[in-house]
Write a protein that binds this DNA or RNA. Structure first.
Lengths: 211, 211
DNA sequence: ATTACTAACAGGCGAGTAA
DNA sequence: TTTACTCGCCTGTTAGTAA
């Protein structure tokens, strides 16, 4: 069944319920295989009940049949489970290693923060200790915003990956340096305000991040 | 890339970010191929950067690598577009052909309606003319509730597919006979009340169905 | 137990071509 | 132009084993 997923996807993209008028040669070039392979595959797929097909001397009409749609649907459901969105992430306030504070304050970053995140960052990061897998799932389900690298006369500052979040309700962003200095069990948060004061946070206190 | 989708899915199902401890033989039997094929494929996938792999004389550890996750994610996004949920469906009130009215009133169906849909149906159907493709998309994004067939001494009554909906805000259900008597450009609605009166509906009036 | 090499084999692929 | 058949080739698969 998975043998045909590429062709199934190709048809489905043009319309899950539409009758596609095309030709084996066209599909062949789109999928980068030979006309003969497409012809054979489509006939096989018809036999399996994945598609309905009508071949004429000047083209071919295809629609997904019930089994084809069901297969894609089932496959889609599996992916849905795999990518199940994590909408919250909990962690504990942790002592910063101090590095982030310096970097995020730099103008080369601040301009981009303002433009891409909508705020200038308080020059310091709040470090939060989280479960690494939970963090990955959480980050995975939010949109990555790229912050470009830049150089001064002295040195180069690397690119950052940012993810907009709310922390205890306040807007902020997770910042992940491309070249991470620590593992992903500690994440760094920036925000337009000094979060420790604003939220009255203390060491080891629990906080909740949301999308 | 699609060559490896089955194995990628297999790994991802066990945990998108987890290190899977398993063996080539185990995967082989789960995917119904030979141990050698799994071994070769995993090595190839590692070369392509789809997974990270650690093989020992007593098993193998696998994690999805960045490229593998990206591929699945991209694929997932394509499916998301394909199955984009239609949350509303508009149509025009149409004269019933009258058949439905008789059937839905039968006890063999009514008991199941009560149990599975939560209401006994007013013995009549409201017929709505809709765009066939829109209808398919709409039905496709709502859950199918199966109503079993049953027999009397005289004859057999076929199975029905039902889909819970709201029509102009009132709870009801679309009923599709397994053996459709008319094309899918006309759909039949049942509800606990007589919809024509309740909603003050007239021929050719526009109505809105929602999930 | 494992993984993975080698070698034999089967089946899929595409070039050529008929209809 | 099409689709689709035949057939040779080559790739991917598996059986047998080594490590």
């Amino acid at each position: 069944m998975y043998d045909y997923i590429e062709i199934l996807m190709h048809i489905a993209k043009k319309g899950l319920f539409d009758v596609i008028k095309t030709s084996t040669l066209k599909i062949a070039s789109e999928l980068d295989v030979s006309q003969q392979t497409v012809s054979r595959d489509l006939r096989d797929m018809e036999k399996l009940g994945l598609i309905k097909r009508e071949a004429t001397p000047n083209g071919i009409s295809i629609v997904l049949d019930e089994k084809g749609i069901d297969f894609l649907k089932k496959h889609f459901n599996e992916l849905n489970k795999i990518f199940e969105r994590k909408k919250e992430l909990c962690g504990l306030i942790t002592k910063g290693i101090g590095e982030g504070s310096y970097y995020v304050g730099l103008d080369g970053y601040q301009g981009q923060f303002k433009k891409k995140l909508g705020f200038k960052a308080y020059p310091g990061t709040l470090n939060i200790k989280v479960d690494e897998k939970d963090a990955l799932s959480f980050l995975n389900s939010s949109e990555m915003i790229g912050i470009s690298d830049f150089s001064t006369k002295k040195r180069t500052y690397g690119t950052l990956k940012c993810y907009k979040i709310k922390i205890n309700g306040i807007n902020g962003a997770i910042v992940v340096p491309e070249r991470a200095r620590h593992g992903k069990e500690i994440i760094e948060i920036i925000a337009p305000v000094y979060l420790r004061d604003k939220l009255g946070l203390k060491e080891n206190q629990k906080v909740k991040l949301s999308l």
